[in-house]
């Protein structure tokens, strides 16, 4: 805490000095005149990192200054998100926000929320899928639900940390189906890959994660998708029925990722970044990349992204409280 305060102070001081030396107008006009950092709250090589890097590369092409992806990991996303929020709002530090920004504060891990950022644009959304072993006893979702009801507490599920988005998705689904959440205990894992490995090894029975995360094991014929919790089917998986189609119960949630800067980003800088990000989102490269990795495309700009987060925040608070995961 103290260190961050000190850093904020120092950066603010340097920023003020810079403005004083150069004069405010030239400062904004010249933007960007030096490399930009794009903070990613998750590790190199993962899905969020990949999105950050493709966006960073496309921004770099348009802005003409290096955009460096900086991985600030740890604390289930708190460290990176707080590094974005506490950076100087000069446009030289922006970051990738993930759904965790509307979850962490409900768990009491941080005070940070959507209000601490200048939202620039939402770039991706992925819905949760339910995955089981291909050679296991459950041929479809109905069979799985029957097994859960017949033996509450026996089947275990995994896919992320305790209280993570996929845990919440499972609880939400169970509640929509009028099954108490305790009927399927959650086994925390370090990520979807570890959870899937445990599923194949026979350590857990169900994995809840996003479709792209399960893709390689599905292609390998080891595991299968049972349903997707979304209002409509995933265009890349046209045969996979939604939860509502199968059970009539309505529940949808998911991960999303978007670009944002610290609070109070000056308007000219914001405009420049937004225009650049929109261009990146509409580019052929971005579309190709996202389709190739099965990532869902989704766009909303600036204030719309902000409103989206506020709405998501309220919804998340409600479902986390009812799931008993909020502090």
């Amino acid at each position: 805490m103290t260190r961050l305060t000190r850093r904020t102070f120092m950066t603010a001081a340097t920023g003020a000095a810079a403005t004083a030396t150069l004069g405010a107008p030239s400062f904004a006009q010249a933007y960007p005149s030096r490399p930009i950092q794009l903070i990613c709250p998750w590790g190199a090589g993962g899905g969020t990192d990949a999105v950050a890097r493709i966006v960073g590369t496309l921004l770099e092409k348009d802005l003409g200054q290096p955009v460096t992806v900086v991985n600030r990991t740890g604390g289930n996303g708190v460290v990176g998100h707080s590094a974005i929020a506490t950076a100087a709002p000069d446009g030289y530090t922006i970051g990738l926000l993930t759904v965790e920004i509307v979850m962490m504060h409900w768990m009491g891990l941080t005070q940070l929320g959507p209000a601490d950022y200048t939202p620039i644009g939402l770039v991706n959304e992925d819905a949760p899928v339910v995955i089981v072993k291909s050679d296991g006893p459950y041929k479809d979702l109905k069979a799985l639900i029957d097994a859960i009801k017949a033996n509450p507490g026996k089947l275990k599920a995994s896919g992320t940390a305790q209280g993570g988005i996929w845990h919440l998705a499972l609880v939400g689904m169970l509640q929509a189906l009028k099954i108490p959440p305790s009927a399927v205990p959650w086994v925390p894992s370090t990520g979807a890959a570890a959870g899937l490995q445990d599923l194949v090894a026979g350590g857990v029975d169900i994995v809840c994660c996003s479709a792209p995360e399960g893709k390689s094991l599905v292609d390998a014929g080891r595991v299968k998708y049972l349903t997707v919790m979304a209002p409509r089917r995933d265009p890349t998986l046209p045969d996979l029925q939604t939860l509502k189609e199968i059970t009539g119960a309505e529940y949808a949630t998911g991960v999303w990722r978007g670009i944002a800067g610290p609070k109070n980003l000056p308007a000219p800088i914001f405009d420049k970044l937004l225009a650049s990000l929109k261009k990146a989102y509409d580019s052929k490269e971005y579309k190709e990349f996202m389709t190739n990795r099965n990532f869902g495309m989704s766009w909303s700009a600036g204030p719309d992204f902000g409103a989206f987060m506020v709405k998501a925040d309220a919804a998340m608070g409600e479902s986390m409280k009812s799931a008993g995961l909020a502090k």
């Binding site: 340097t14 000095a17 030396t21 005149s33 030096r34 460096t68 900086v70």
Partner: peptide
């Protein structure tokens, strides 16, 4: 290699 080494006073000159 793009390690984000601190720039510090370098910002004053660019």
């Amino acid at each position: 290699m793009r390690v984000p080494l601190p720039r510090g006073i370098l910002d004053l000159f660019v």
